[in-house]
Amino acid sequence: MSTVERWVLVFESVSATLAAEQALKEKGIPYKLVPIPRHISSDCGVCIRVDAHQRALAEEVLAGRVRVAGVHRLPDSRPRPS
């Protein structure tokens, strides 16, 4: 059983999150929009989740395009269902 390490990228606003989403989509980087985990922020918004091995690439794509407010490893990264 392998645990997939996942990270979330958090942004200042929904507009920024969706701008980031567009940038990742254009570059074909897999991501998922997920609610911001409570331990990171009490905001009701969404953030972008990527697998650990995509994280550096994702940040590179976003650099200079959208300000990333925070990058967090998900402690509860779950085993991927087989």
Binding site: E12, S13, V14, S15, A16, S42, D43, C44, G45, R67
Partner: peptide
């Protein structure tokens, strides 16, 4: 604005500052 909801001050970033 749907952003920075934990704060009681208006966000200073674009576009939320004016939306």
């Amino acid at each position: 604005t749907g952003s920075a909801s934990e704060r009681e001050e208006q966000p200073l970033f674009m576009p939320d500052k004016y939306e």
